[in-house]
Simulated assay, not measured.
Amino acid sequence: MYLRQLDLRDFRSWPELHLDLEPGVTVFSGRNGFGKTNIVEAIGYCAHLSSHRVPTDQPLIRHGAEDSRVSATTVNDGRELTTHLLIKARGANQAQINRTKLKSTREILGVLRTVLFAPEDLALVKGDPSERRKFLDDLIAIRTPRIAGAKADFDKVLRQRNALLKSSGLTLRRGYDDPEGATALTTLDVWDAQLARTGALVIAARLSLIDELAPLIHDSYAAIAPESRPAAVVYVSTVDQAVEELTGASTRDPAVIEAAMLSELGRRRKNEIERGVTLVGPHRDDLQLILGDQPAKGFASHGESWSFALSLHLAEFQLLALEGSDPVLILDDVFAELDAKRRQRLVHVAEQAEQVLITAAVGDDLPGNLDDAVAARYVVTMNETEEGRMSTIEKVGETT
């Protein structure tokens, strides 16, 4: 798989950009803040419908513009598809594949597959559980787009349920004997059922994914840091106890997880009403990263943390590659963060990919053993105009 063409309009610092890309290695160099990462961020957005840098879409739209547009032409086993995304400041985003308008932007998931390494990856190890949940959910969305729909439905139900808990706490405490309390509790019952149904699909998908990822993560970490302790991953859920009580063992069956989640919601209802927040569900789960017999977070060294973050993405790349075409590999300013050993391991993966996109502040950050694979080099600069700062790009040997 490779990206043949990219067009941007009003995306961050780019009022306009057109790129014709090739298989092999493409390097974007330029000073920090000039807009090179914005290019690969746009590509990653086409693959995941989210940014690796910010949690919302608003910062992606160039200052003063109403919307931004990202178009990407992907070639996969000779088949060419072009996705168009309109990212709007107000209202729902819109998407097309070739000339066909889609009902939901999620329908483009899977057309372009990417694996991205970035300095932000340390948050996978040192950051909040939300970072690790996002890692799992993004990968699930690429492999099984319908689960992305279930996750979106879960998030919507969760917001509604939390709003009810927060705004109607006093009414809910009155119980079923009070008419208003009974109405509010009946509404809560409805949200519980929907939350359990959609949440069970998300949890089951995450558990199944980890079954496949865990051995790949273990082996990747051992290759990166053979002198370190063995790496492992464990999914820790708010419904683990309830599942154990129902089945006596773990399960990937959504129906069993749904029953367990309903049971746990019932058990913790009083606490949730008192606190005004939902305490049960995949939004409270975590992917625990373990080195030896200790959690990596808080116990791993800086080098071990980087190795673990790399091993997660190496496992992601291997899993996607096993399913067919190699994903597009994006290395966003990471070589400067890595020592020689980790650079070598990353170069080994890059050599396997059909297309690699690299950003670097200076050309020296690129390992010498990748030079022969470089198909194109671009220099990104920044111009000050009356309309603000605007990125420009020049291909080595010609002006773009």
Rank of each mutant, 00 (worst) to 15 (best):
D7R: 07
R9N: 04
E16H: 08
D20I: 12
P23S: 07
T26R: 06
V27N: 04
F28R: 01
F28Q: 00
F34R: 14
G44I: 13
H48Y: 04
H48C: 02
S50Q: 09
Q58D: 02
L60N: 01
L60T: 00
H63R: 03
D67E: 04
S71A: 06
A72R: 00
T73G: 00
T74L: 04
V75T: 03
N76I: 05
N76A: 04
G78A: 08
E80L: 05
T82Y: 04
I87G: 00
A89T: 05
R90T: 06
T100I: 14
T100N: 09
K101L: 14
L102S: 14
S104W: 15
R106A: 14
G110S: 05
V111Q: 06
L112R: 01
F117P: 02
A123W: 04
L124G: 03
L124C: 03
F135N: 02
F135Q: 03
F135S: 02
D137G: 05
D138S: 07
D138F: 08
A141D: 00
R143M: 03
R143V: 03
R146V: 11
A148T: 03
G149H: 12
K151S: 11
R161E: 06
N162L: 08
N162E: 10
A163S: 08
T171C: 04
T171L: 10
R173M: 15
D177E: 10
T183D: 13
A184P: 04
L185N: 06
T186S: 09
D189T: 10
V190C: 02
D192R: 02
L195A: 06
T198G: 04
T198Y: 14
L201Q: 14
I203S: 08
I203G: 06
A205Q: 09
D211W: 14
A214L: 15
D219F: 11
A223T: 13
I224R: 02
I224L: 11
A225G: 10
P226S: 10
S237G: 13
E244F: 13
A249D: 10
D253N: 13
P254C: 12
P254S: 13
A255M: 13
V256D: 02
I257D: 05
I257S: 08
E258V: 15
A260R: 07
E272F: 15
R275A: 14
T278Q: 03
R284H: 12
Q288E: 10
Q294Y: 15
H302Q: 15
S307G: 15
A309E: 00
L310R: 11
L310D: 10
L312G: 05
A315L: 05
F317V: 05
F317N: 02
F317K: 03
P327M: 10
V328Q: 00
E337V: 07
D339K: 08
K341L: 09
R342P: 13
R343G: 07
R343W: 11
A350K: 09
A353Q: 12
A353D: 11
Q355F: 12
Q355W: 07
L357G: 09
L357H: 09
T359I: 14
A361Y: 11
V362P: 01
D365V: 07
L366Q: 02
N369I: 13
V374A: 03
R377I: 12
R377H: 10
T381F: 12
M382W: 10
